[in-house]
Design a protein around this nucleic acid. Structure first.
Lengths: 145, 145
DNA sequence: CTTTTTGCAAAGCGTTTGCATTGAA
DNA sequence: TTCAATGCAAACGCTTTGCAAAAAG
């Protein structure tokens, strides 16, 4: 099942970068900070659009490659989507997702009952299960007006 | 929650096409048949590669557009992925998915316990929930050798 | 016959790669 | 000073669109 805890501050972030021998660049800090500031699991381009206002020189590639690097070292997760661009989540603790089918936003929610679900026997025989998540789909408050 | 039942045969399929005023073409029948034959939730291109051996003239576009049409009328579902091409599922009954992180195969499984899960209160207030599914990730038997 | 569907080609996104330049350590 | 990271450009893969020809009803 999912392990590890959410990194809430930039100090912890730089510490983890050092452990993985990743250089700490202003871009990496800014990208990680934007990820923490958002709660809708942004795509690379969403983060790029925000950051290029502040850092006129930043490139989409850096944002995208950095997010993939973060995923590789386990501080962000690529979340499930139904087509379209990859979406990223800085929350690597045990949690679940709800997708709005209208506006595409993805929100986290928590449920002890969901966390406690056992993996069915038939699955255990076929798969070595690594993670478990409940995905809800629906229409959010904003989209219902 | 999910409703509707799996369409097991081509007769039912043609009936539903008629109800939606979709013309019944050899391509549509072949595409739907291939979807039923597969249990790994193929991408459009996977189905295209299979069908072009049999129907030398079929185009990728037809396969792709047809799958999207099927999704629109509700006889197939676009399933969750973690990047890459859309994957399609002809099983629109209540079920759950397990993904192999190595080979990318997606398999259905069933669990009464999972089906019975209630939507948490906090979510009900924010979302009108339409569907609910448990997503497991792991390594399948084949990939473990 | 009418209208939808098909196949093809081109365009549109999102992602990935190679490479010279820049910057962190 | 060294080596990783960045920015840029080009390539690649998946998806979508417009349109003339073909096929279904």
């Amino acid at each position: 099942m999912q392990t590890g805890s959410r990194i809430d501050n930039i100090q912890e972030f730089t510490q983890i970068c050092r452990e993985h021998r990743l250089k700490i660049t202003p871009q990496r800090i800014a990208i990680y900070r934007e990820l923490l500031n958002s709660d809708t699991h942004p795509a690379a381009d969403t983060i790029y659009q925000i950051l290029k206002k502040e850092y006129t020189n930043i490139s989409f590639d850096t944002v995208n490659r950095t997010l993939l690097t973060f995923a590789k070292i386990g501080i962000v997760e690529v979340v499930e989507t139904f087509g379209g661009a990859k979406r990223f989540d800085p929350n690597v603790t045990n949690h679940h997702h709800i997708h709005c089918s209208q506006c595409g936003k993805i929100l986290d929610f928590y449920s002890r009952a969901y966390d406690k679900l056992a993996v069915p026997d038939g699955v255990y025989e076929q798969f070595q299960v690594v993670s478990k998540r409940v995905i809800l789909k629906g229409i959010c408050k904003d989209c219902r007006q």
